[in-house]
């Protein structure tokens, strides 16, 4: 066996071990906002939930069986990765305008997880505008924002957020094509999602800010919001 093959195999074994460790030994962290988010959904009979993270089987079971939601999975991290690898990041803004086929004000809850950390301001604004459009009045949106310097990360990773229970999440990192961008300030976050109101804002020891938004019952849809796209 050639030395190069041996090294390649060793590297692969290491990567495999990393992946396994990521799945089983990932840290479980408390979450304060998830329970509030679920409480916000609870008023409706069969709330419609939009999950922007990667599909996680146990989350589908949790939200579907225990909470009784209808879940829509729209993994945006794949879209971001695709744009990055094709060197079309600047097209993300226009892409988000057409990404969501849902009618306006049809979604009861949106799970953004930490997706906004990976977007630059213009793309984040367009995405937030679309999410605001599809969210029902009185609907809730949960987003996480990192407060740490993204340059401290050695390898860019996304995080798969696995719901353990209403008070705990497991953070499973997986490889990303794009690193987190500069952290958003509180004021920027607030402006980004206007007219949504921040109802809860938790700063965790993990340098993560959990923010729960609610759409005011009287909030009008932004006139500039693009119509729903066809799937």
């Amino acid at each position: 066996m050639a030395l190069s093959d041996l090294f390649a195999r060793l590297r692969k074994d290491e990567d495999g071990a990393d992946a396994d460790a990521g799945a089983s030994d990932s840290p479980v962290q408390p979450t304060k906002a998830l329970a509030r988010f679920l409480a916000g959904l609870g008023a409706r009979q069969q709330p419609v939930l939009l999950d922007l993270g990667p599909v996680v089987g146990s989350n589908v079971t949790f939200f579907g069986e225990e909470v009784g939601c209808k879940i829509l999975v729209e993994d945006l991290s794949k879209d971001i990765d695709r744009h990055v690898t094709q060197a079309k990041v600047e097209e993300l803004q226009a892409f988000f305008d057409k990404r969501f086929p849902q009618e306006s004000e049809t979604i009861d809850g949106i799970l953004c997880w930490d997706l906004f950390d990976y977007l630059e301001r213009p793309a984040a604004e367009r995405l937030a505008r679309q999410l605001t459009r599809v969210l029902r009045p009185d609907g809730v949106l949960l987003a996480f924002f990192s407060t740490a310097d993204p340059r401290s990360a050695i390898r860019p990773t996304y995080t798969r957020h696995v719901v353990i229970d209403r008070a705990h999440l497991q953070y499973r990192p997986y490889q990303a094509a794009r690193a987190k961008q500069r952290p958003l300030l509180n004021r920027d976050i607030q402006r980004l999602f206007e007219p949504l109101r921040i109802t809860e804002n938790f700063l965790l020891k993990t340098n993560l800010r959990e923010v729960l938004f609610r759409k005011p019952a009287t909030a009008a849809v932004a006139p500039s919001a693009a119509p729903p796209a066809e799937r």
């Binding site: 599909v55 879940i71 999975v73």
Partner: peptide
């Protein structure tokens, strides 16, 4: 009523699980 999605599976769409009988 039951949906199991393995890690490594691809899914895009919606999942509508009918509630358990008690609910």
């Amino acid at each position: 009523p039951r949906v199991a999605i393995a890690e490594g599976a691809h899914f895009r769409g919606s999942v509508d699980m009918q509630r358990k009988s008690g609910q």
